[in-house]
C-alpha cells in the first residue's frame, strides 16, 4: 500500500527537467523532494495528478496501492493536493469548503457531523460558519488540509506547503500536517526548496 514512481522522466521539447526519478512512499510517511525553484518540482506533482500541461512529454509509471495511475482521469486518481496558497473557495464558508470534499452518499446531517468532528479534532471547534476571509493564515492552512483529507484520498501531494507561513507558525502547522497524514496512514510526497521542511531530515534531491 504505497505510492510508487518508476523512472519518471518529464521533458519540455528536448529539455529534460530532471534525472529519471524512482521512489516509493510507504503509507503514513512523508517523502521529501528537494530542489531549487524552476527545477520541475511542481511539474512532477502535476504529472502525478494528471494535470500536466500539453507541451510536456512524460514517461515512466506511477502506481498507487498497486493500481497504475497513468492515463487515469485526475478525478479518479484519489490523489489529494495541498499548495502553499490555501486555495479555499471564497464563495463558501469553512463548513462548505470542507463538505465539498465529502462523498455524495452521506446525508446532510452526516456531513455536518463529520466536518464538526474534524474541526474539533484540529482545534477549530465552532469554525464551520466562518467566512474564509476572516481566518488567519494558520487557520486557512489547517482547513485546507482537512478539506483534502476529508475526501479520503489514497495519497497526498504537498507543494511547498509551508513556504508562505510566518516563521512562528511553521513548526506547529508542520506538526499538524504530519500528524494528520500519519493518522490517515496514507503515503505523502512533499516538494520544497527548504530542507528544514523535511519530517525526519531525509530528502531526495531532484536535479
Amino acid at each position: 500500500m504505497s505510492l510508487v514512481l518508476d523512472s519518471i522522466k518529464i521533458s519540455l521539447g528536448t529539455v529534460q527537467l530532471f534525472k529519471p526519478l524512482s521512489l516509493t512512499a510507504p503509507p503514513g510517511s512523508i517523502v521529501t523532494l528537494m530542489g531549487p525553484s524552476g527545477c520541475g518540482k511542481s511539474t512532477l506533482l502535476a504529472s502525478i495528478c494528471g494535470m500536466l500541461d500539453p507541451g510536456f512529454s512524460f514517461s515512466g509509471t506511477i502506481a498507487l496501492n498497486g493500481r497504475p495511475l497513468n492515463g487515469i482521469e485526475m478525478e479518479h486518481r484519489k490523489v489529494g493536493i495541498l499548495f502553499q496558497d490555501d486555495l479555499l473557495f471564497p464563495h463558501l464558508d469553512v463548513f462548505g469548503n470542507m463538505a465539498f470534499g465529502l462523498p455524495a452518499r452521506m446525508s446532510r446531517r452526516q456531513k455536518r457531523e463529520r466536518v464538526n468532528n474534524s474541526l474539533a479534532a484540529a482545534g477549530l471547534e465552532g469554525f464551520g460558519a466562518r467566512d474564509i476571509a476572516t481566518l488567519s493564515g494558520g487557520q486557512k492552512s489547517r482547513v485546507s488540509l482537512l478539506r483534502a483529507l476529508l475526501a479520503e484520498p489514497e495519497a497526498i501531494l504537498l507543494d511547498e506547503p509551508f513556504s508562505k507561513l510566518d516563521e512562528n507558525l511553521r513548526g506547529s502547522i508542520k506538526q499538524f500536517v504530519f500528524d494528520q497524514i500519519g493518522l490517515m496512514n496514507i503515503p505523502a510526497l512533499m516538494v520544497t526548496h527548504d530542507r528544514s521542511d523535511s519530517a525526519d531530515g531525509t530528502y531526495i534531491e531532484l536535479k
Binding site: 502535476a46 495528478c49 494528471g50 494535470m51 482521469e73 485526475m74 478525478e75 479518479h76 486518481r77 484519489k78 490523489v79 489529494g80 493536493i81 499548495f83 496558497d85 486555495l87 473557495f89 465539498f100 470534499g101 478539506r147 483534502a148 475526501a151 484520498p153
Partner: peptide
C-alpha cells in the same frame, strides 16, 4: 482567479 489550480483542487477532490 486562480483557475488552473482551482480546477486542480476540484479534480483532486473527484469532481468533473
Amino acid at each position: 482567479l486562480d483557475v488552473r489550480r482551482t480546477i486542480w483542487v476540484g479534480r483532486s477532490l473527484g469532481y468533473h
